[in-house]
Amino acid sequence: MKLLLSLLLWINFAGTPDLATIRKMYPNVTKSDSNAKEFSAKMADISDNDDKILVAYKAASILLDSNYQKKLTNKIARFKEGAKLLESTIKSEPNNIEIRMIRLSIQENVPRITGYKKNIKEDQKYITTHYAEQNGALKDYLKDFILQSKSFSEKEKQFVK
């Protein structure tokens, strides 16, 4: 019985990617098709009941996957699915700075025609306001994002250096 319980727990934890790995992968997902596919595969088993930060990364992977759909209807459907998941995740944790960073990173890079660029200023302001409150690892991750982001001014970028 103990063996069976141990095996089930191992399978459950082995399938869920750890946040450090995901954070390491995320900045590079748009650099190649293989990076994007690897990221999407890693996020595929995340459910809506998992850690909300992982759910937000899954939403980003769905939005990214929409780029690789051949049919326009499939592109639109995947995009809407990812955006809806990301928005519901933010609604459940509106004060989570990392989830807002994920949304900002998506909205900075989607075409204007999608209409999904409406929260850029709000998220940029939230990140700027709450950056100093974060712990070391998350602060470093946010800093790397801010320094490469188009949404932050040079003055804001100097603030995080």
Rank of each mutant, 00 (worst) to 15 (best):
residue 1 M to V: 15
residue 5 L to R: 09
residue 9 L to K: 15
residue 9 L to G: 14
residue 10 W to T: 15
residue 12 N to C: 11
residue 13 F to S: 10
residue 13 F to E: 08
residue 19 L to I: 07
residue 22 I to L: 06
residue 23 R to H: 12
residue 23 R to Y: 08
residue 25 M to H: 05
residue 25 M to A: 14
residue 25 M to N: 14
residue 26 Y to S: 02
residue 27 P to E: 03
residue 28 N to F: 15
residue 29 V to L: 10
residue 30 T to C: 14
residue 31 K to L: 15
residue 31 K to H: 15
residue 31 K to N: 15
residue 33 D to L: 01
residue 35 N to D: 08
residue 35 N to K: 11
residue 37 K to T: 12
residue 38 E to P: 11
residue 40 S to L: 11
residue 40 S to C: 01
residue 42 K to M: 14
residue 43 M to W: 05
residue 43 M to L: 06
residue 45 D to E: 15
residue 45 D to G: 15
residue 47 S to G: 13
residue 48 D to L: 13
residue 49 N to Y: 04
residue 50 D to S: 08
residue 50 D to R: 08
residue 52 K to T: 03
residue 55 V to E: 07
residue 55 V to A: 08
residue 58 K to F: 09
residue 59 A to V: 07
residue 60 A to E: 06
residue 60 A to C: 01
residue 61 S to L: 02
residue 62 I to H: 02
residue 62 I to K: 04
residue 64 L to C: 12
residue 65 D to C: 09
residue 65 D to M: 02
residue 66 S to Q: 11
residue 67 N to L: 14
residue 68 Y to W: 13
residue 69 Q to F: 04
residue 70 K to L: 01
residue 70 K to A: 02
residue 70 K to G: 03
residue 72 L to T: 03
residue 73 T to C: 02
residue 74 N to C: 08
residue 76 I to Q: 05
residue 76 I to K: 00
residue 77 A to F: 06
residue 77 A to G: 02
residue 78 R to L: 13
residue 79 F to K: 04
residue 80 K to L: 12
residue 82 G to R: 04
residue 84 K to R: 09
residue 87 E to Y: 03
residue 87 E to H: 10
residue 91 K to H: 00
residue 93 E to T: 10
residue 93 E to D: 07
residue 95 N to H: 07
residue 96 N to H: 00
residue 96 N to G: 05
residue 96 N to R: 02
residue 97 I to P: 13
residue 97 I to M: 07
residue 98 E to I: 08
residue 99 I to N: 01
residue 100 R to F: 07
residue 101 M to D: 04
residue 103 R to H: 09
residue 103 R to E: 04
residue 105 S to D: 11
residue 106 I to Q: 04
residue 108 E to T: 07
residue 109 N to H: 14
residue 109 N to S: 13
residue 109 N to Y: 09
residue 109 N to T: 14
residue 118 K to Q: 15
residue 119 N to R: 01
residue 121 K to L: 12
residue 127 I to Y: 14
residue 129 T to P: 11
residue 130 H to D: 05
residue 131 Y to I: 13
residue 132 A to Q: 05
residue 133 E to M: 07
residue 135 N to I: 11
residue 140 D to T: 10
residue 142 L to P: 05
residue 142 L to C: 11
residue 143 K to L: 01
residue 144 D to M: 12
residue 144 D to N: 15
residue 145 F to A: 00
residue 146 I to Y: 02
residue 146 I to S: 10
residue 147 L to S: 05
residue 149 S to E: 13
residue 149 S to I: 05
residue 150 K to E: 08
residue 152 F to M: 09
residue 152 F to Q: 14
residue 152 F to R: 12
residue 153 S to D: 01
residue 155 K to D: 05
residue 156 E to Q: 04
residue 157 K to E: 12
residue 158 Q to P: 00
residue 158 Q to H: 07
residue 158 Q to K: 10
residue 159 F to Q: 13
residue 159 F to R: 10
residue 161 K to L: 06
residue 161 K to C: 05
